[in-house]
Design a protein around this nucleic acid. Structure first.
Lengths: 241, 241
DNA sequence: CCATGAATCAAACGATTGTTTTAATCATAC
DNA sequence: GTATGATTAAAACAATCGTTTGATTCATGG
């Protein structure tokens, strides 16, 4: 009676709990969301969580696992497709970025199946203090990050790998805010006249690619004293497309 | 006996509590940090927090207030300086970005006075679910955001304001990850060979400016099908420097 | 029709939460 | 030295936390 059957899809209580937990985690965070809030919203008994998942931490993990596995599967499928088309040649950075971040944005645009809810949760979880959540995320992401970084290294052989790594990191931050911030961050109160999610994708893509292809630091033409307009021949990271 | 004196700087217990709370909030988050953990690390009695601050929420607010007021004061001072130098002319976008994000990175580089600790906390708090924290942040930021956005609008008159707003938003995301991620995000496990904080500033600045000046979306040369390398005359957001 | 095991239920578990109370201690001014 | 008010201290407050228990319901196959 300890472990529920795992060959059957399980009726529905289990899924209702996952959905409720996902929504409540977004709204209140992990710690501030109690088991009673979850089971209450799911219309289940308080003991149902421990019965189906064992512990609260295990529930959190499962909330992430079911979506994250799918997200990274799609990402890797998109990358596979690109590499198959290219036939051994290095990929265009813009395509790589599109495959990784565009796929995430597509999931975030799905408001009917909970994808939107989850992506908001995911965005704020990258920086979550909770230790075991971070480690779990790292494991789930390991393969995808490794392959996409390798693709970027190949695509930008002249850019130092440290630089690519950092910029990939920056891009993840921008994407997280893009998703989480649409409704979460009211720092720019009343300023978002146009929060059309339709336009978010091209907006973010332009920004990400601009950052990725920015002139490398160290070249003294950047940042501090950029004397005149648009120096020609400025040292640039990526002009592969 | 209810309200402590507010004309005296107060001895030190109050500050020890703030420092302990700041450090513990970074490590565990707000909810997972108990009053007993705070007072324990501060070497104070459990009742000291409620005596000095009234409530846990008020303590959280004070942790942010004391640093955030200073940070935004410096930001606005830097902007004042730029505008004084320019004498009425629009500013260079790179200078504006430097004044806003560079000032934050400088505070994050201060590892001796808790600035580093706080900036890590701040970065992950922008997306905090906790309602009253977000509202408090919005109020503390209102003036600085308003003035910097206005400066960017003037600096980039040809760029739609919505676009500037979004890119400012993206930049905040990238910066948050830049600070919080150095130690928090181990997603790229073992990959950060060069996490030298000295180099973080120019790296982030290059990325932010690249994103800010990226070609605007909508122009069909961007993102999806960028046929050839580096189209000349591509529509670009900002080439003021 | 009954046996079997999964699923649900109400109720309680001990532990920990933020906060309060009441008394003791401390410093300072008269 | 004694009064005054700020600070600290120990102890307890009710409330809520995640989890467990043991009984009951339900579905299914022999």
């Amino acid at each position: 009676m300890r472990a529920p059957t795992d060959r059957q899809p399980a009726p529905e209580t289990r899924d209702r709990i996952l959905d409720a937990a996902e929504a409540l985690f977004v709204e209140h965070g992990f710690e501030a969301t109690s088991m009673r809030m979850i089971t209450g919203q799911a219309g289940a008994n308080i003991a149902a969580v421990n019965y189906h998942f064992g512990t609260k931490d295990a529930l959190i993990q499962e909330v992430f696992r079911r979506r994250l596995t799918e997200l990274n599967r799609r990402r890797l499928a998109a990358l596979d497709r690109l590499e198959a088309e290219a036939g051994g040649a290095p990929l265009k950075p813009s395509r790589i970025v599109q495959a990784f971040f565009g796929t995430a944005l597509e999931m975030a645009a799905d408001t009917t199946n909970g994808g939107h809810t989850f992506m908001r949760l995911l965005g704020r979880t990258y920086t979550e203090p909770n230790g075991f959540v971070r480690q779990f995320l790292a494991e789930e992401y390991a393969e995808a990050v490794e392959r996409f970084l390798a693709a970027l290294y190949r695509a930008l052989p002249d850019v130092p790998r440290d630089e690519i790594l950092w910029r990939f990191h920056f891009m993840m931050g921008a994407m997280s805010y893009a998703i989480a911030g649409t409704d979460a961050l009211q720092l720019f109160a009343g300023q978002f006249d146009d929060a059309d999610p339709e336009r978010l994708m091209p907006r973010l893509m332009s920004f990400l690619l601009g950052g990725l292809r920015a002139p490398l630091p160290g070249a003294e033409n950047n940042g501090e004293e950029p004397a005149g307009p648009a120096k020609r021949g400025a040292r640039t990271a990526a002009r592969k497309d």
